[in-house]
Design a protein around this nucleic acid. Structure first.
Lengths: 195, 195
DNA sequence: CAATAATCGTTAGGCGGCTAACTGTCTGCC
DNA sequence: GGCAGACAGTTAGCCGCCTAACGATTATTG
């Protein structure tokens, strides 16, 4: 759907041949790299397909999920301060939690509000801020959609045993760490935590 | 970069708690699902960062790669008919190979041509078609960029042994197959292959 | 208290996906 | 030969992502 390109992955023999021309090409690394992107794309496509049946995009779905988590009554509120994260409310918090810019979040909230899933309200204390909340229609959507969503995810992973899933997560974690080290897109917040 | 949402993955305990409310939620499946999308996103971000240094987007890079493969002199041309795929030339072929629509390919070729990386030429035989080719500048870009690109990929996968890479590809392959089965975005071409 | 700095949400403009519809060209069938 | 249909490429319009910049508001600091 969104991002990959290269629908048909090149065969391993082609990688080996190309490696003759490019000594930096590590065939098994490229193979894993392409499979990772390709699989992510396919998986994304499945869930996006489910969402589009409800006229909801992936980005908007993420916002709804974050708001839903914020709206939970928190049955055991005082156990750990950040047990499952308090939950974002303002556009800036939502953008931070979703990993997009505030400008993007403005657009997402715009369409969600237009379609009646969320509602903006001015913050009476800090008049720079807005407070975004799920509407009843937004909650209704989530309660209707989430069971099928979880079923899709379970179906996607059903070919993998529990052990294989753990292995997959472990291997992906290694790549994540490496990617985070290579990608200085958000400089490490080492000395910034206020305390 | 493009597509995920949910920068901070929820902790496994939260998934377990949420599973109480949603019996369809398979915690290990959701965990693997989220890690897969997240890792794909991180990896994408690394390569996209490299590309943006050259003012090239991921989508355009894919087109350049496809055209570059088409431009190869094919040192051993007659071994297998489709040894490494003949190579797309027209916008429709490029769109098919890249997995995007023809309309999207028009836009990609537009910007690539504007920036001097490719050139359109009318097909003298079938006047509906265009032939897209790499310009010398396009080839030059690839030869400058690809070594670093391959180095990045090798670095990303460097924490994984050869065995782990094979395992990763195998597990991803299972998910790909399952996703393809669940995602009827392109109905299976069972009876269409001409022979 | 005033001036500067920081933050919030938004806007403007660009890119790259998509679908739907259009024009031009070729194919096939009568 | 002529006309309906199929196909190639483009266009128009939507959405979501980005960066850069803006006005409004709050925080900081003298």
């Amino acid at each position: 759907m969104p991002y990959l390109l290269l629908k048909d992955l090149p065969r391993y023999e082609c990688l080996l041949e190309a490696a003759k021309e490019f000594p930096d090409l590590d065939p098994s690394a490229v193979e894993a790299f392409l499979h990772l992107l390709h699989t992510g794309d396919e998986v994304f496509g499945v869930t996006d397909h489910n969402l589009s049946d409800h006229n909801i995009s992936h980005g908007r779905f993420g916002v709804l999920l974050l708001l839903w988590r914020s709206a939970q009554p928190r049955p055991a509120p005082s156990r750990d301060a950040d047990e499952c994260v308090p939950g974002p409310r303002t556009p800036a918090e939502l953008a931070e939690a979703a990993g997009v810019t505030r400008a993007t979040m403005t657009g997402l909230i715009d369409t969600l509000e237009r379609d009646g899933f969320v509602k903006r309200a001015p913050d009476p204390i800090d008049r720079r801020q807005m407070s975004v909340r799920l509407t009843p229609a937004g909650e209704r959507f989530l309660h209707e959609f989430l069971p099928g969503h979880f079923k899709s995810i379970a179906a996607l992973l059903s070919p993998l045993s529990e052990t294989e899933r753990k292995t997959l997560v472990r291997l992906l974690g290694k790549i994540q760490d490496q990617a985070a080290a290579l990608n200085p897109r958000r400089a490490v917040t080492l000395a910034s935590s206020p305390g």
